[in-house]
């Protein structure tokens, strides 16, 4: 096995390890991006009052 495919295989635990890490990446990205977007939306509302 090449070092690369060996890395992705995670010694046979690929599903578990990559699911856990993938889920973590997803949750952290959402945690950061959603409030940033909300903050921008609120600021735009303040800058352009109807």
């Amino acid at each position: 096995m090449s070092p690369m495919s060996e890395f992705f295989a995670m010694g046979g635990y690929a599903i578990y390890v990559w699911s856990a890490w993938g889920l973590t990446a997803l949750v952290m990205t959402a945690n950061l991006l959603l409030p940033l977007r909300q903050c921008r939306k609120l600021r735009i509302e303040l800058e352009q009052p109807e």
Binding site: Y13, Y16, A20
Partner: peptide
């Protein structure tokens, strides 16, 4: 083996 690598996020 490699399964313990979950510890770094868990």
């Amino acid at each position: 083996g490699d399964s313990y690598r979950i510890i770094f996020v868990h």
